[in-house]
């Protein structure tokens, strides 16, 4: 199994030589995950907060649906997205098939339930005494909302990181919706799938290591933010 050693070596070479194909895939991966994470956080955190905080009719059922969506297979999302975004599909006129924004929408569908469910859980785990404390310090409803969100920031961060992990590593959506088009929609994961299919295992491993390296850098940035947030 000389792939493993070769993979490491190759990963370093790809990065050091500034291999254009690899960097194009890195760029696509970062861009698309940036879109999908922004969308799923902007939509997911408030929804998760509401789901965890507010009591409304059918809350339990909504929660059940969200929790079920946690198990959405990426290939299935990819297939559904294709059906919708295909030129013959209901959203075909938007021209999103084989584009990064198209992949991002699919990844948002993947990440959204994670962000919602985990933020809702974080909200539910919130100490009931927080509300009492905030009111007794003079906070109004808006301030209670903001301060409560701030209070569970670590849980929200965890939700974001978990979602990011899935978004970064999914193949099904990128492959189906993006089409693995070189220089355009080829992400690191679809590139790995391609290289593996070609029997270029070492290159596949190298790309996998590159992905890990990116995840590592992102986590370093996040932990820097986290320190600022404490």
């Amino acid at each position: 199994m000389e792939y493993i050693g070769n993979g490491f070596l190759k990963a370093i070479l790809l990065l050091l030589h500034g291999d254009a194909e690899t960097f194009s895939a890195i760029y696509a991966t970062l861009k698309v995950s940036f879109y999908s994470m922004t969308a799923s956080l902007v939509l997911g955190i408030p929804s998760g907060f509401l789901l965890g905080y507010v009591n409304f009719m059918g809350k339990h059922q909504v929660r059940l649906v969200v929790d079920t969506l946690l198990s959405l297979p990426t290939v299935f999302i990819g297939l559904m997205m294709y059906a919708f975004l295909s030129n013959r599909g209901p959203l075909g006129h938007m021209g999103l098939l084989f584009t990064l924004p198209g992949i991002a929408i699919g990844q948002t569908i993947l990440a959204l339930p994670i962000v919602i469910a985990l933020s809702a859980t974080a909200v539910e785990a919130m100490d009931y005494k927080l509300r009492t404390t905030l009111i007794s310090l003079g906070a109004n409803r808006m301030q209670i909302l903001l301060s409560s969100l701030w209070e569970i920031r670590h849980g929200i961060f965890a939700a974001g990181l978990t979602a990011y992990g899935r978004v970064m590593t999914e193949v099904g959506i990128s492959m189906m919706v993006g089409g693995n088009i070189k220089w355009h929609t080829r992400t690191i994961t679809t590139a790995i799938a391609l290289e593996t299919g070609k029997g270029m295992f070492a290159t596949g491993i190298a790309l996998g290591l590159v992905l890990l390296l990116i995840a590592f850098s992102v986590n370093i940035m996040v932990s820097f933010f986290k320190k600022k947030l404490v």
Partner: peptide, 17 residues
């Protein structure tokens, strides 16, 4: 630009424009 898929899927992509 090209997407490399199985023959069946390639034909299907064409059918769907």
């Amino acid at each position: 630009k090209w997407t490399a898929v199985g023959t069946g899927k390639a034909l299907e992509l064409g059918k769907n424009c």
